[in-house]
Nucleic acid binder design. Structure first.
Lengths: 372, 372
DNA sequence: GTGAAAGCGCTAACAA
DNA sequence: TTGTTAGCGCTTTCAC
């Protein structure tokens, strides 16, 4: 394991010499003819050393290809510079940008992310947790698509920073980072109102999703703020699918009622289905009916005819925020409560505006929600 | 950091006692009144111990909440039980199932996966690599969406197992795991032929993708095997989009030529676009024209009207295979070359068969390709 | 300026 | 059956 002395090359004598394992600080020391602690000082730029010695050592270290062993450092420091990310739903469309944001943020601080997929299997989750604890992660991030509540992670009697992102927690002391569904819905509805639409219907997903309820709240708020009375006939909830979008259009546009002049949809799939349904009825989008979707799922929104104006939850920002908070928590700061981050409006063609992405940020500062 | 003696509780005296850091083996030893090595033996079930002692120690360890520190173990063993996954394209739709398969396979062997996103930024990639090497990962997996070649990863003079998955490598000694695009295309085309279709067109993506070329090869092979002469007029390449699918249908069905009775598409987006194009021309799918897609991207294939029969690259299997091979390589086995894994046919309604998913596995054994 | 030594938490060879 | 001891690779304090 250890490259005793100056050895370490493959005995096969191939063209490229390869080490079985990395050279250690001791290898550098003996190669430079100094003590181990001197090398340490030179490399960590802390002690006082003769410039010549320092440079010689650094050069030697580089030549040997020395790379400090983080495992040993961690052991000594009591910090591993790693965190675990547990996804309860398999790595889906939503988890992805979150992971990206998180990883990007943490990478800057030299923190690496262990990726664990539990897929709603409690036993696997426990095993993963076990492993992560063994690896002495400095923090934990839990995520899952189903915004509905999940069982709280139990890490025993260890004091470990945990953040739930895009996922609720029943732990009252837990830190939860979520998109501001209500604000996002309001943003979308206000956009439609601002364009002069008055009869705005809301086609959305299954009632039991908290996101569905929150988005409906935002939709209603926007209407009320504009002095428009919400009409229950204009609120339809069904599945998160294109088929439901088409079906809902059938309902809205076939009976004797006055048809809406705009649709605010619970997600982009519904919105796209609605767009298809309208086109097939000969109703023009956006001339006759404007549409706003939710999720800003690019491949859906852009493939739609016409391309969808949509609400973006900015999941990457969610991931970054999670990373930032986690870093602080690792540093000893204590948080708790639910943090809801603002959504953005991405304008495409389904509302008649072809402005280039004017992202209306509601506010830069994440609003601290009530701690449940 | 160390819980000297029996302490370790928070001094705040909250209801739940929490350790600042995990209890160590030394804590267990002193609590059980035995030596450290005895505890080690008891916990690792190797040495010979009086049953009573063993059980007492195990009980004590559990009570204290002791969990061995993998960092320390790794340091000693020279193995970290971690691997790094570097994605050069951000974690896309394709990377996700691969990650899942990989992680699932490795988790069984108690190996954790570090997730790194480089997004085609060479500098970030280098930093990630640096970090991973510092963490002494036992292996590396490189993936990227663009199947086109990428620069070889340089880990210096360290002998570290590396596998490229869903991504080519210019390293002649490299191990590469890929889907069998050619075989998959053949499978899809054969399916259409088997249903009696003879005039099968191929609408696919940009020429410069290797996958496009391979899939075309498979398509041609299948035709030739069935005694059908491939017709250049039936091979259209454009973008990977629905719009291109619709456009291609316009080309195929508007000029004076005999229209095809089946379409084999390069991906599901193209296929879906084609299905829409046909419907809008009043051409029935599958009665008049049958369609096979590629990727089996569920949300696309299922939302299509009708739902698409499609070729599944089984990316999860790719990930698992990568994991298995990596484990072997870490164990000292040497591989090299390109491994192509079989695709599956997923039957939906776009070909007129509503069988339940009959997955035609070409072969269970991954075919060893030529090592470039 | 530089080096010796102790220790992070664990394992394994050797003693008792 | 149990305990002692010497590391794994690094940091840090304290002598020299």
């Amino acid at each position: 394991m250890s490259n005793s002395g100056d050895s370490g090359e493959k005995t096969t004598g191939g063209p490229r010499l390869k080490f079985r394992s990395s050279p250690t600080i001791r290898d550098v020391a003996s190669a430079a003819g100094v003590s181990i602690s001197t090398v340490s000082k030179a490399l960590n730029k802390n002690g006082s050393l003769k410039t010549e010695t320092r440079e010689r050592i650094i050069a030697m270290a580089k030549e040997i290809g020395f790379r400090p062993n983080d495992l040993a450092q961690s052991l000594h420091r009591g910090q591993s510079f790693t965190v675990g990310l547990i996804s309860n739903d398999s790595f889906g469309r939503f988890t992805m940008p979150i992971m990206e944001g998180l990883e990007g943020c943490l990478a800057e601080k030299k923190i690496a992310v262990f990726m664990c997929n539990a897929t709603d299997d409690t036993e696997r989750e426990r095993q993963h947790l076990e492993q992560l604890m063994g690896k002495r992660v400095d923090g934990l991030v839990i995520t899952s698509r189903r915004s509905d509540h999940r069982s709280t992670i139990d890490v025993g009697n260890i004091d470990l920073p945990i953040i739930y992102v895009f996922s609720k927690s029943s732990d009252p002391d837990g830190v939860v980072v979520l998109p501001d569904d209500c604000g996002g819905a309001k943003l979308g509805t206000e956009h439609l109102i601002g364009l002069g639409r008055r009869r705005i219907a809301h086609i959305t997903g299954p009632e039991h999703f908290e996101a569905v309820q929150l988005r409906r709240d935002g939709y209603r708020e926007a209407l009320l703020d504009a002095g428009i009375e919400p009409d229950d006939k204009y609120m339809l909830s069904g599945k998160w699918s294109e088929a439901w979008g088409r079906q809902a259009v059938d309902v809205l546009f076939s009976n004797g009622n006055i048809p809406p002049d705009a649709l605010f949809c619970g997600n982009d799939q519904i919105a796209r289905g609605a767009a298809d349904g309208l086109r097939e009825r000969g109703i023009l989008v956006p001339e006759d009916v404007a549409i706003v979707g939710f999720d800003n799922w690019k491949v859906m929104a852009e493939a739609s005819r016409p391309p969808l104006t949509s609400i973006d939850m900015d999941l990457r920002a969610l991931g970054r925020e999670t990373g930032r908070r986690l870093i602080e928590m690792i540093g000893g700061v204590n948080f708790s409560g639910v943090y809801r981050l603002p959504c953005k409006l991405i304008v495409r063609e389904s509302c008649g505006q072809i402005n280039n992405n004017s992202t209306h940020n509601k506010s830069k500062i994440p609003s601290k929600g009530n701690s449940k």
